[in-house]
Every structure is written in C-alpha cells, then in structure tokens.
Design a protein around this nucleic acid. Structure first.
Length: 798
RNA sequence: GCGGUUAUGGCGGAAUGGCAGACGCGAUAGACUUAGAAUCUAUUGAGGAAUCGUAAGGGUUCAAGUCCCUUUAACCGCACCA
C-alpha cells in the first residue's frame, strides 16, 4: 500500500476547504429545486457536544449531502437555543455573566460541529439570545397579545419556600426542589398564558396530512387529549340559595346511575355557599391540605381516595329528579372539564372506590359481564342499558347520543368537546430569557410596548439571583422597571418575568430562511422559496411540547399572513438514544459517557460518523461499543486501500446497480445501518476479487461520501486528477441493470429446505420441476406444488 | 391505570408472509513477525446425527421472526382527564 490512512491530515484538509470556501452556504435560487433539512438546534451547554447530538444530526447530514449531489439547493442550517436555566445557574455559580458563558459555549459547539465535518450552512447561524433574533420572538408575542391569544391569569405554581423561587415542573420532581432539596409548595401567582387550546382542533386534525412517524402522531394525539361528551347542569340547593353546577362527562348515558356529585376542593361553588355549608371549617382545611399536596403525593393517593361531604347543600339529578349528596374531593381536578363531576360509581373506577369508601349507593345502569358488587363495569363496547328509563335496552353507543339529544331538548345539557392540553404557561421568574414586552399600568392594565421599541433588550444585571418574593431578578432594576404607561402616561411598571425556553425554539426554523431580515421574522421572498421544512429530525423527548408549540406558532403566523404554510414541517422523524456500553442511559454518575472528541482524536470524524450510523436501527436506542468503533475504522482503512487496487477487469461478481439502489433507498428511509452494511459487503467483494474498476470505485466513493465525506473527498480527488466529489452527481442506474438472468431458488419439501437450483428468471413450474430429482423428494408422492416465480419452490409430499 | 415501543447467536443487529442470523463485533485456528500490535485467510446458532432453533403458549397458511388470539418481561410517554 502506498501510504497509510492519515485521517488527521485528511480531515483537517477537507474541513478547511469546505468551511473557508463556504461550500455549504446556500442562497435562494429560483432555478433549482429546494430541500430544507432541519435538525433540532442544540442548547449550548458547558459540557459540549454529546454523541447523541451527533447521531441526531448525522442522519439528515447524509440526506443533505446526497441531495446536493442530486442537484438540489439544500438549506441545512444550525443555530443555538441558548436561553435557559442551566446557563443561568452556572453563571451564578462561577459569577460570570450568562452572555459571556453562552458565547464561550457557542464557540465550543461551533468548533466541535466543524470537527465532525457537518455540512451545515454556518453563515445562517441563529442564536435565540441575540437581540436581533429575540426582537422577533417578542414581536410574535405582541401579535398574539393584540389578538387576545396571550393573557394573564392566577394559577397555582410550584414554589420553593427555601429558595423563594417559582420552579418549573421539571425542577420540582417528586415535590422536592432541585436546587436545595426543600419541599415544594403550591402558591397562587399571576401567570401569562398563550391560548394554544384555541388551536387544539387544528393541531389535531392537521396531523392526518403530515408525514410524521406514527408513534410521534400518537404522542401528539394523546397530548392534545381530545374527548367528547356533554356538559350537564345539576341544580344545587341550600336552604335559601340555588346554584347551577355544570359537570363534564363523557358518559351522559350513565346519568341514571349518578348517585352523587364531586367538586374539586378549589371549586368556586364552595365559596358561593360559604354561609350555608354546615361544615365549612372542615371543607376549608381539606382545601388547604389539597393545595399543599405535592404532585407526587396526589399520584400516590391514586388508590386511596380522600374527600369530604359538603353539608347543608344537596343536588338534584336532572334526569331522575332524585336528591343526591355533594362531595369535595381532590381526585377531581379544577383544571380539567368544569372541575365538577357527576359520579357514577357503577361504571367508573374512581367513583366506585369513592362510593365504597363513603358507603354511597351504587346503581347499575349497564348490564355487563361483571358483578357490580365486586367491581365497576367500565367497558363502552358491550352491555345493555338498564334502570335507565327511555334508554333501557339500548347499547352504550346508542344511548350516548340519545341522552345528549334528550338533554338538549330539555335544556339540561349540551354536547361538549374537551382537551387535556392546557393553555401554555408562558413566563418564568428568571433573568436569562426574553423580556416580555408588556407594561403593567394601574389604570390601563397590560399595555404592549410599541413595536418600534423592539427589541426590548435584556438589561445588564450584575446580580441575577432570584429575589425573595418570587419575582424575576429583573424587578431589582428599578430604573428599568419604572416607566410611563404608553397609553395614559401614568407611572407604570414593566413586566419583569421572562419567556420560557420554549419560546425561542418555536419559530427558529423560519429565521434560518432569512437570518438577517430586519423588517419581519422571515422575509417574504425567502419564505416563498423555502416554504415548509421538508424533513425535520430530532429526539422523541421533543415531539409533544416543542413540536406542538412550534406548530402552534407557525399556524398563528400563517393566520396573520406572515408565512405561507399552515404547517411548518412536512416530515418528522426521531432518532433513538445512544446508550452507554452497559446498555444504560449515558450519565456522568454511571461513568459511561462517551466523549466524541476522544473518538475523533483516536479514529477520526469519518469513523465516528460511520459507526454512529452503523450502530443500529436509527430510530431505536443502541448501546455504544468501543469494538464496534474499531470495526468501522477497519472498514475505512480497507476503503483507503482500494485506491491501489484499481484494475479494469470484466467481472460478474457484483451488481453495482443493485448496490446503488439499496444504498440510495436506505438513505431515504433512514436505514443508514443497512446502507453501510451494503457498502461493507461490496468492499468485501472487491477484496476477495483483489481489484476494483475505476467506475466501481468512483461509484462506491460517492455512495459512501455522505457518511464519511473526508476520506471520500480525498480519494476521489486523488484518482480523478484533483476533481471534487462534492461537484459530482449522485450515481444512477438503469432499471434493467437490476434484473439478473439466472436466479438461484430454494427448493422446499413440506416447507423444509432440501436444496437449491439455479434456473432462468423466466422459468415456469414445469422447467423448475425438471430440475428436481427423486432424492430430494425421498421417494414420496407429490400432493401439491407451490412455485413462486424467481423466489421459491415448495413441494408438498406424502 | 391508560397509550406506545420492543423481545432474534456470546454481543450490536439483518430479513416486501418465501433459504433465519446479512453486515459488524467477539472468539478459534492458520499465515506474516525475533515477539507483540496491526494486517491477511478460514471457521463460528445448538446438536454425534436425524433434527431443533426468533420471550412463552395456541392458531391461520403449501410456507410464520413476520399475520391472528392468550400470556410474560423490559423500555418510553401520559397519568385520579370524569
């Protein structure tokens, strides 16, 4: 061999060539077909890039490089989702400004990304913490505010009494504060919300026309959580007052079995009847208890129902006219449905448990195949209505619409659709986020700042520790906070909360189209050209929140005429996790973390890229393997050796067209592992033959180029007098080249393999049977012959 | 609890209902070498064999890892959602 595979030299050389010449920089070109490939931009954390990032990017990297050779104008951008808590916490720890830390981290990520040789367009980088970017994050928020889609409302938040800070759900796992370990309590607070529920139906319906993996669609459907049922009004009475209590139910058919009502501890009806409730102090202390309950406790309470009877008031079942008691219990949530339910213990597990515990009547209204004295009958697809007046004899399917119809006619209730998805809580009491561009005026309420004042820059702050009273650190900047109301001129205060991390990532894919556009989030021309993201890849952990939030923002921007497509992403895939060599999730504490820099140092970026794609099914989790990495390094060394084996010989040991087809198809369907396996099999043919033709090698290098671009660029240049592989075309083949004239087909007897015969592709059953000798049949007589042309012959004998 | 995904050699993993185990790793033997590493060549599911083998049990089919039913285990998501 002429020289060894010097990956260090090669990789440096080609990275320099790509990035200095801006080979992957793209500009809009009406004459070229476009392809927009998007990967989830990273959070630039201090620990740098993880092998998981590389797997997430490597998939579309292959597609992007392939598309360029196919003649597409490819937008394959990268950016940084850089606002967020870890940076802020780290900044407090090391007493540096988050801006400085963010810049350091981005520089580090940029270096790492280039060391892997990714073909991103580094001239379109967006950074969500750049005022030029969050200008438009704030602008979009203002548009939502102006259209009534952003509102402030009181709600319960997780509060750490020790740190005196509001925590996100992720920071208060199991009711314990992430920062200090104290117990978290619930506290009422003013919170900004975005009305994403208003978009629930569209977000749900559009899914059917999108090319997302089924498991992604399923998660989104569950997250949106549509349910259809009815709102039914129950009259609740005390000695001298009435209240129309509206309950939500998906089972109006069971109303004859509603033997009591349950309202959540926070339900406003309890306040309304305060003077009439006999056991008010008990009710109030139960309410307090429920509030203090931490999330995890509520979950544990799952089996053990608590609650309290509300004395002094009664309800009337509107259908049966019977008087039924009212309870307050924390198994009914204030934020779902109406915060009140009609309890049908015979046909609902929770109501059943509650009824058993409080000795309440259980009235069976659907005759099913269970003993109601032992367990509830909850199936919707069987049984027959009983004890239910005009519903008797109907199936559940018939009874639901019949009862809704009856309620509508008699003014007792109406059909109602509900969603589990809640409105999006859109603020944090943190420094390192986009300031919310609103001024709170004592006279005018919330007043948006003028768009001409955008971006509302995050002011410099020396001390960004949270304050004692659970307000944002920004509230300490009185000069900044105290302003005049833009509407009435009275003294007013700026909103000091910032936006959540999800904000910046909800529209970044649009900014890539025109990263410097000064007059809009995205320029019209650029949006007109790039349109939807053709293929978006990322992690399963983001397919609910981030994916739904960004679909919502894009849909809003579509509604107000900013973008041309209602849906942002045509296609969405998700890569599997890379696990440690021990099969467990990589984590510092387990000590099984693989640092990509180390792998690049030892084997090179091409080996890292090849192995990360070869490791297993792209969409499933796979454990890391040091030996596997070496195997890919060996493979690339064998590729390197091919340049000394070029010889023009006539051969029939390889169908190159079939290789081109297999590899091309596999890249398109994200089956990178089998594509690489195919290339390994191909190189094994070259080696056992001892030679490769020039055409075979050129083709082979082009097929491998998207996976291992450095080595392929180098070898292609060497054997083609300096020509650049990135300026060539993707290999093609003619359909007839795939057809083999002779095929080997297996011969089975009674389904068991007994031999093989080689026949012409067009051979019919008689031709094939001529090749079958008695030995194979074992002297038995033939009952049936199944012959699938070109595939298999199965003979049934007796 | 509900929803989803998965289960194939010693390991990672391949298989439009049609030859189970492609490809890689590891292992064994040999070649080269003073020696090792690297590299190359051969073998490598189990079993003496007939045969048996895709989590377990049933079924459909000429033919099942693949389709249907029952069960088990692991992982992910949601979770008292009315």
């Amino acid at each position: 061999m002429a020289d060894i595979y010097n990956f260090k030299f090669i990789e440096k050389k080609w990275q320099k060539y790509w990035y200095e010449n801006k080979i992957f920089h793209v500009t809009e070109d009406i004459n070229k077909k476009k392809f927009y490939g998007l990967i989830e931009f990273p959070y630039p954390s201090g620990v740098g890039m993880h092998v998981g990032h590389i797997r997430a990017y490597a998939g579309l990297e292959v597609v992007a490089r392939k598309r360029r050779l196919e003649g597409y104008n490819v937008l394959f951008p990268i950016g940084y989702d850089a606002f967020g808590l870890p940076t802020e916490n780290y900044a407090m720890k090391v007493k540096k400004h988050p801006r400085i830390i963010t810049d350091e981290n981005i520089r580090n990520f940029d270096k790492q990304l280039r060391s892997v040789g990714f073909s991103f367009d580094f001239d379109r980088v967006v950074d969500t913490t750049d005022p030029g970017y969050y200008h438009w994050t704030q602008w979009i928020f203002l548009q939502m505010f102006k259209r009534g889609l952003a509102y402030k409302s009181k709600t319960m938040v997780n509060f750490c009494p020790q740190c005196k800070v509001v925590l996100a759900n992720e920071e208060s796992q199991n009711g314990i504060c992430d920062r200090c370990g104290a117990e978290v309590v619930q506290k009422e607070k003013d919170v900004w919300f975005l009305k994403i529920r208003q978009y629930a139906e569209r977000l749900l319906n559009n899914l059917s026309s999108l090319d997302y993996l089924d498991r992604i669609k399923t998660e989104q459907i569950n997250w949106i959580g549509k349910s259809t049922g009815a709102e039914v009004t129950f009259k609740v009475k005390s000695a001298d007052k009435d209240y129309d209590l509206v309950v939500y139910t998906t089972r109006p058919d069971t109303i004859y079995g509603a033997t009591f009502l349950v309202v959540s501890p926070e339900h406003p009806m309890l306040k309304y009847f305060a003077d009439d409730i006999g056991n008010l102090s008990e009710i109030e202390s139960y309410q307090k208890q429920a509030l203090l309950k931490k999330e995890f406790e509520r979950i544990q309470m799952n089996k053990d129902k608590t609650g309290i009877k509300v004395m002094g008031i009664d309800a009337v079942n509107p259908i049966t006219g019977k008087i039924i008691p009212v309870f307050s219990a924390d198994y009914v949530m204030m934020d779902y449905g109406t915060g009140a339910i009609m309890a049908v213990p015979a046909h609902d597990t929770r109501d059943y448990e509650f009824a058993k515990k409080f000795n309440l009547p259980i009235v069976e209204v659907i005759k099913g195949d269970v003993d109601i004295s032992v367990e509830p009958y909850i199936a919707k697809d069987g049984g027959e209505m009983i004890n239910s007046g005009f519903l008797n004899g109907m199936s559940v399917k018939q009874a639901i619409p019949a009862m809704i119809e009856y309620m509508k006619k008699n003014g007792l209730g109406k059909p109602k659709t509900d969603y589990k998805m809640k409105d999006w809580a859109f603020n944090r009491q943190r420094y390192w986020g986009e300031p919310i561009p609103i001024i709170n005026c004592p006279h005018c309420g919330q007043v948006p700042i003028s768009e001409s004042e955008l971006p509302l820059k995050l002011p410099d702050l020396a001390d960004f520790e949270p304050t004692d009273d659970a307000t944002s650190p920004l509230s300490k900047l009185t000069d900044w906070v105290n302003v005049k109301c833009p509407r009435c001129g009275a003294p007013a205060k700026r909103e000091t909360d910032t936006m959540p991390q999800w904000a910046g990532s909800s529209w970044y894919f649009l900014r890539y189209m025109s990263p410097d556009c000064p007059y809009a989030p995205v320029s019209r021309d650029a949006n007109e050209y790039w349109r939807q993201v053709d293929w978006y890849n990322g992690g399963m952990e983001h397919v609910t929140r981030h994916l739904i939030y960004s679909r919502f923002w894009n849909m809003f921007l579509y509604d107000i005429g900013v973008v041309k497509d209602e849906e942002p992403y045509k296609k969405r895939t998700a890569q599997g996790l890379i696990l440690g060599a021990d099969g467990e999730k990589m984590s510092k504490s387990r000590g099984n973390v693989i640092n990509p820099d180390d792998v690049i140092k030892e084997y090179g970026a091409d080996t890292l890229r090849t192995f990360i794609l070869f490791i297993g099914d792209y969409e499933k989790p796979s454990p890391w393997s040091v030996e596997g990495t070496r195997g890919c390094f060996r493979f690339l060394n064998r590729v390197w050796g091919l340049s000394d084996m070029i010889k023009e010989t006539e051969t029939n040991d390889l169908n190159l067209a079939a290789v081109i087809k297999k590899v091309s198809d596999d890249y398109e369907s994200a089956k990178y592992n089998t594509a690489i396996a195919q290339l390994m099999g191909t190189i094994n043919v070259f080696y056992s033959r001892g030679s490769v033709t020039k055409y075979e090698l050129d083709t082979f290098l082009k097929l491998l180029y998207p996976v291992a671009p450095h080595i392929c660029s180098e070898m292609y240049e060497k054997i083609n007098n300096g020509a650049k592989i990135n300026e060539t075309d993707w290999p093609t083949y003619k359909a007839e080249e795939l057809i083999e004239n002779e095929v080997e087909i297996p011969v089975q007897v009674n389904g068991k393999l007994r031999g093989r015969i080689t026949v012409s592709r067009e051979a019919d059953q008689d031709d094939v049977m001529k090749c079958v000798n008695d030995e194979i049949l074992g002297g038995k007589s033939i009952i049936k012959i199944v012959y699938v042309k070109g595939r298999i012959l199965n003979i049934v004998v007796k």
